[in-house]
Design a protein around this nucleic acid. Structure first.
Length: 562
RNA sequence: GCGCCUGUAGCUCAGGGGAUAGAGCGCCGGCCUCCGGAGCCGGGUGCGUAGGUUCGAUUCCUACCAGGCGCACCA
């Protein structure tokens, strides 16, 4: 599926290829093995036409003629029959600029309204199975800003990929096993003892947050002191079980209120129980990728381009986080995903190369595993950084953020920067209910269109969609620019999918909203001229669809009233 | 020391081998007897430094400088 814009580019590429062939045949150009990789671009400057190509400049070296001369020859040979090209000009160092009849773009409008929710959908992904794993926060606390950014990014990327023809699975990996859980268990036990009047200490690296006191109180309400003198393992097991259930439920609920839901919740403990971890260690061992050193079992990561070898089994026989993660990713590939996307915080970037190395060792294509590393989030309030420390339990949680700025604003702010850029989250701006706030700006455009349609409804007057002849009534500059930008939507979405970059969409939507506002302020949609009203109605309806579809991909509501 | 990310307008950030590098915020000045003023219009000599590749570099390469993050038998 290609958009009207792509279609036009393809037409021009075809015409240029034929023109070059013609020039060769006429002996003007020498024989060419093949045409260089030229592009058709949309010039930044309006004066440079609707489309431009660099073909002449690229050809210069091969046919030994100056670019402008080549451009002239191509211009003479090109056949533009059937295309809405009004004129062709040679400009600058040798660009060939194409100027189109403005109405070519208007044909997109009825198409948008017909496709409605599906406008922008493509088969870019070709049905490939793709998994997006994101957040995967430790179920030992509440979600913080890093998790929140991951949630917004992951969910939007998943939505975009799905809209672009991928079969998407959203997955949350629950770290409910391993060293951290042991620490949690010990800390819970200490709190349990303390609350029941028995002296106990929490280890320095344990969990000191206030929240687990509340959790243990809840546990005591349920079970009293019945675990006070039982076997330690049993006691800790029960405490951990109870706590993880409670914490995970809260995390799920918070994510749901953030508009994020998962297809799969994958438990690390299940991974251990099923024996995959052991199986993977054995497999790597039998392949000769492991060796013993100082009592531990090491993976020869260096054979796969990683800086140093890594411990797989500790000297106490326990698998490392790395070993478990290898098993997990092996399992992902075994489930048949063509591509696997992980979203990790910048503090995990050192993990990327060794995960890919392990996948290569197991015979999978490491490039099928794509890790998005997102940089850290800093909150600003009153121009000052909001200091946070997870250690002491002093940090702003996602719940609090949603409470303060609202879900839509939070989601927008988290994806409006590229993942590999640090994110400065301005709480004052996010909270502002005014034009300063880009989210309201976009939502306002949508609500404004709804308002127009509502008023029309109230008059009871029915305006039919304009016929092809009436489309040309759309001829004001603000209208044509808006329509032209609407036509870009499918390509914008595809590029967001290609780059796994939702921030492209936030910018695009902001721009479309701006164009709508400009148009709205300079021309009336509903006027005594019925034909013109119909045409403009089509334009705003199409705009509403693009805004709505775009916001949906970002998990932002498209309100009909504000 | 090694590795990854980032240095673009006063601030926060897009963009990216081409023709005059953009947006938001902030600041200044304008615009409604009319579909929502949460809006519109106008105001801008900025690509960290030095080399290299190229017809052409802000974009690609190298080095350097600056900031962030890693470099555990933690995750």
């Amino acid at each position: 599926m290609s958009s009207a814009v792509d279609q036009m580019k393809e037409n021009l590429v075809g015409a240029l290829k034929l023109a070059a062939g013609k020039a060769v045949k006429q002996g003007i150009f020498q024989e060419l093995p093949e045409l260089p990789d030229f592009i058709i671009e949309v010039p930044r400057e309006k004066d440079h036409g609707d489309f431009a190509t660099n073909l002449a400049m690229l050809l210069s070296k091969e046919v030994h003629l100056p670019p402008r001369k080549i451009a002239g020859i191509l211009k003479g040979c090109i056949d533009l029959q059937g295309l809405p090209v009004e004129k062709v000009e040679i400009a600058g160092p040798g660009f060939i600029n194409f100027y189109l009849d403005p109405k070519w773009v208007l044909e997109i409008l009825p198409e948008i309204v017909t496709l409605e929710d599906n406008f922008g959908r493509t088969d870019f992904g070709g049905g490939a199975k793709i998994q997006v794993e994101f957040v995967s926060a430790n179920p030992t606390g509440l979600l913080h800003m890093g998790n929140a950014r991951g949630a917004a990014l992951g969910d939007s990327i998943a939505s975009i990929l799905s809209f672009c023809g991928y079969q998407v699975t959203r997955e949350f990996y629950i770290n409910d096993a391993g060293h951290q859980i042991e620490l949690l268990g010990k800390s819970l036990q200490a709190r349990y003892f303390q609350l029941l009047g028995r002296p106990a200490e929490i280890a320095a690296e344990g969990y000191h947050g206030e929240d687990i006191i509340e959790t243990v109180k809840g546990f005591i309400n349920l079970y009293g002191d019945s675990f006070l003198d039982t076997d330690e393992a049993e006691r800790i097991n029960e405490l951990v079980d109870y706590t993880l259930k409670e914490k995970l439920a809260v995390i799920k609920e918070t994510l749901l209120s953030f508009g994020v839901s998962y297809d799969v919740w994958f438990s690390e403990q299940d991974l251990h129980n099923s024996g995959i971890v052991k199986e993977i260690v054995d497999r790597l061992n039998s392949m000769g990728f492991l060796y013993e050193h100082e009592g531990a079992l090491w993976f020869k990561a260096r054979e796969f381009g990683v800086e140093k070898d890594e411990v797989i089994l500790r000297s106490n026989g326990a698998p490392t986080y790395y070993a478990t993660d290898i098993a997990y990713h092996f399992n992902k590939f075994q489930r048949g995903f063509d591509r696997i996307i992980n979203i990790w915080g910048a503090d995990h970037h050192g993990h990327v190369a060794r995960m890919k190395g392990a996948m290569a060792a197991l015979g999978y294509n490491p490039d099928a595993l794509h890790v998005i590393i997102m940089q850290l989030v800093r909150l600003y309030r009153g121009g000052e950084i909001v200091r946070m420390s997870k250690r002491s339990g002093q940090y702003v949680t996602l719940e609090e953020l949603i409470e303060e700025v609202g879900r839509d604003v939070a989601r927008y702010f988290f994806v409006m920067r590229s993942a590999d850029s640090h994110l400065d989250f301005d709480l004052d701006l996010a909270r502002a209910q005014s034009n300063e706030n880009p989210v309201y700006y976009i939502q306002y455009a949508h609500a404004r269109i709804c308002s127009i349609l509502r008023q029309l409804d109230e008059t009871g007057k029915k305006l039919p969609l304009p016929g092809a002849d009436d489309l040309i009534l759309i001829k004001e500059e603000t209208e044509l620019i808006l329509a032209r930008r609407l036509a870009d939507f499918p390509e914008e979405v595809s590029m967001a999918a290609r780059d796994l970059a939702p921030h492209r969409l936030t910018r695009y939507l902001h721009e479309v909203a701006g164009l709508l506002h400009s148009f709205y302020n300079s021309h009336r949609v509903i006027s005594p001229d019925e034909k013109l009203s119909c045409a403009r109605l089509l334009l705003v309806k199409a705009t509403r669809i693009v805004l709505r579809n775009g916001m949906r991909l970002l998990g932002i509501q498209a309100p009909e009233r504000m």
